[in-house]
C-alpha cells in the first residue's frame, strides 16, 4: 500500500508544471524515505531529478518500494483539476496497474478522485557524481526567467560567465548581441531578492536557450534559483520545493566541435 497526503497540494501542481514540457513520461520511485523521479528528456541533453521527502508530507505510507510509471501529460491534466488550496492524496495498491489522486477542499465539502493507468517504463537511471562546483550562483528565480526569456530573442545559445566581479549572461544572433551582468548584491531588504556568488575559479559555459526556458517553468516553485557550474560539466539549475525537496535540472553544455 502506498499513500501520500499533502495539505499544500499546490506544491505538487507546480512540480508537474515544471516537468511536463520537458518530459512526456517518467517513473515516480516510492520508498519509505519519500518519492523520487529521475528522467532524461527525449534528446538526452538534460536530466531532471525530483525529490519529495516523506517527512514533507502530512501523511506518508509506503509498505514496499514501488515504481509508478506515468504519462506526465495525463498526470498534469489530472492535477489541473485540483484547486490551489486542495489537499492532495496519491494512493496505489502494491503491484497495482493504476494510481488514484484524491482532491479534498480545505473544508472537506468537495472531494474528487481521479484514477489513472500506470505504465511499464523501462527507464535508465544515471549516477550523478558528487561535484564541488567552481561557481555557485543564487539569484531570484523570476530574474533568471526574465534573463533567459530576453536573451532567447537573440540566439539559440546563452553564454554564462562567472567571475569574481559577477555573473554575465550573453547571447548573439542575426539581430545583434545582448549582455546582462549581475553583480553580487551589497545589501537587500529581503533575502529572496539577493544575488550571491560563491566562486572558486572563473567559469564560462554555453547552453541551449530552449532547455533553460523549459527549466524556468519551475519559477513558480521557489523565490530563488541556484545555478552550479564547473568547466566542461553539466549546469545544475535547482529550485527548492518548499522545505520538502527539490527539482534539479542538469544541462549538458555546448562544446567546441
Amino acid at each position: 500500500m502506498f499513500e501520500a497526503r499533502l495539505v499544500q497540494g499546490n506544491l505538487l501542481k507546480k512540480v508537474l508544471e515544471s516537468l511536463k514540457d520537458l518530459l512526456t513520461e517518467a517513473s515516480w520511485d516510492c520508498a519509505d524515505t519519500g518519492i523520487q523521479l529521475q528522467a532524461m528528456d527525449n534528446s538526452h541533453v538534460s536530466l531532471v531529478s525530483v525529490q519529495l521527502r516523506a517527512d514533507g508530507f502530512d501523511k506518508f505510507r509506503c509498505d514496499r518500494q514501488l515504481s509508478m510509471g506515468m504519462n506526465l501529460t495525463s498526470m498534469s491534466k489530472i492535477l489541473r483539476c485540483a484547486a490551489n488550496d486542495d489537499i492532495i492524496t496519491i494512493k496505489a495498491q502494491d503491484q497495482a496497474d493504476n494510481v488514484t489522486f484524491v482532491f479534498e477542499s480545505p473544508n472537506q465539502e468537495k472531494v474528487a478522485d481521479y484514477e489513472m493507468k500506470l505504465m511499464n517504463l523501462d527507464q535508465e537511471h544515471l549516477g550523478i557524481p558528487e561535484t564541488d562546483y567552481a561557481a555557485v550562483i543564487k539569484l531570484p528565480a523570476a530574474e533568471f526567467q526574465r534573463i533567459i526569456k530576453d536573451l532567447s530573442q537573440f540566439g539559440e545559445s546563452v553564454v554564462i560567465s562567472c567571475t569574481k566581479e559577477g555573473v554575465k549572461f550573453s547571447a548573439a544572433g542575426d539581430i545583434g548581441v545582448g549582455n546582462i551582468k549581475l553583480a553580487q548584491t551589497a545589501s537587500v531588504d529581503k533575502e529572496e531578492e539577493a544575488v550571491t556568488i560563491e566562486m572558486q575559479e572563473p567559469v564560462t559555459l554555453t547552453f541551449a536557450c530552449r532547455y533553460l526556458n523549459m527549466f524556468t517553468k519551475a519559477t513558480c516553485l521557489a523565490p530563488q534559483v541556484t545555478l552550479s557550474m564547473s568547466p566542461e560539466v553539466p549546469l545544475v539549475v535547482e529550485y527548492k520545493i518548499g522545505d520538502m525537496g527539490h527539482v534539479r535540472y542538469y544541462l549538458a553544455p555546448k562544446i567546441e566541435d
Binding site: G127, P129, A252
Partner: peptide, 14 residues
Amino acid sequence: KVKQASIMNFFQKK
C-alpha cells in the same frame, strides 16, 4: 562551431 553535448557523456548508467 559549438555542438550540443549529450548528458550521457557526463553521467554513467547505473
